[in-house]
Simulated scan of single mutants.
Amino acid sequence: MGDPHARVTLEDVALAAGVSKATASKVLNKRPNVDPRTRQKVEETISALGYVPSTGPREPHADVAVDVVFDSMVSMYSLQVLNGILTASRELGVEVVVDVLDREGGAETPLSDAWLTRTAARRRLGVLVVSLALTARQVRTVEELGLSLVSVDLTGPMGAGLASVASTNFAGGTQATEHLVALGHRRIGFAGLPAQIAASRERLHGYRNALELAGIDADPALVVHGGFTAEAGCRMARELLARPDPPTAIFAACDGAAFGVFEAARQLGRRVPEDLSIVGFDDVEPAKLSSPPLTTVHQPIADMGRVALRTLHTLAHGGTPDSPHIQLATHLVVRDSTAPPPPRR
């Protein structure tokens, strides 16, 4: 027999009540999406076993808050997503608590077991993550703690039970490349984000799709991967433009990298768009102010944040979103950074 003085755990409660640990956690945290009969059974089991939560006292009025975790807050993309989240938070009467993975110090790393347990103890509505890869363990822990979870631009595998919001990256990549092909470009470089990021892979697939539809053989030497920043874009562009047969146009997988392509062109004495056409992806505000203004794929970044918070709010209150994986439409915005290629020498 077990120790009669051993502490009762949430697993004991779930086993005795004949439910999953996730369901027992939802009842404990007073989540609404539980059948009333199941709720009563779990509550009676908690009382009968004398279960006491190990996560400390619960804050009774904290369940109108959501924790939002970003990879970083240094990009215009992150700020626009946050703007959409804050717009929805005001509409829904929900408080937003922001954290980032790259912050220094702090007792707990965001999305660690300890951080998630503390979040559940505060009875948050759930967790919204932006441009992050989640492990299977993290998704499972969130579910067991009874928290709702939504991802914006998930960078890793899309696990079961994980709701997500993104844009039509494949279509956007196709639109950007088709525009360059229509101008007459045949040597088109791709300056991508880190290869493991799903959005970058989808934009690359769109780029290759447009080339294939135009009967242009994709040259692997014209595809490079780097990062989100202008520094990364500059490095990638210099690498592409150093090829023996360099591209006459570069499609950068984000506007930040596209601004770096502008700088590489300046350093190498290439005029934009006379010598080199440039297309970005995002349509952040500075794209209108670059010289020349940047042709780019517009994705509704603020709307992605707004829809993500609304989806999380729906899930936390027992509702079912229209789709667990939402993609918002992109469209090409043509400005002055693209033109027909220069005559071949």
Results as ranks from 00 to 15, higher is better:
Q80V: 00
H61K: 03
V34C: 11
V68H: 06
D35R: 14
D71H: 04
R31P: 05
A107H: 14
D102G: 10
P57L: 06
T109V: 15
V64G: 03
A107N: 13
D35Y: 09
E43V: 05
G93E: 10
V94I: 14
S54L: 06
I46W: 12
V81Y: 01
E104F: 10
L82K: 00
L111T: 12
E43S: 11
T109D: 08
I85K: 04
V81W: 00
S89N: 06
L101Q: 15
V96F: 07
L92A: 08
E104G: 14
S72E: 06
R58M: 09
E108D: 14
F70H: 01
S72F: 02
M73Y: 00
E59S: 11
V64N: 09
P36S: 06
E108S: 15
V42A: 14
Y51T: 07
V69P: 04
G106L: 13
V100E: 13
V66F: 08
R37E: 12
P32C: 07
N33L: 05
S89E: 05
G50C: 09
T109N: 08
R31W: 10
E104S: 14
D71R: 09
A88S: 07
I46S: 12
V98F: 08
P57Y: 00
L28R: 12
D99I: 03
S78C: 00
E95I: 02
E104W: 10
I46R: 10
N33C: 03
L49I: 08
E91Q: 14
V52F: 03
R39N: 07
K41M: 08
N83F: 01
N83W: 01
D67W: 08
T55S: 11
G106Y: 13
Q40C: 02
L92Y: 11
A107F: 13
A65P: 00
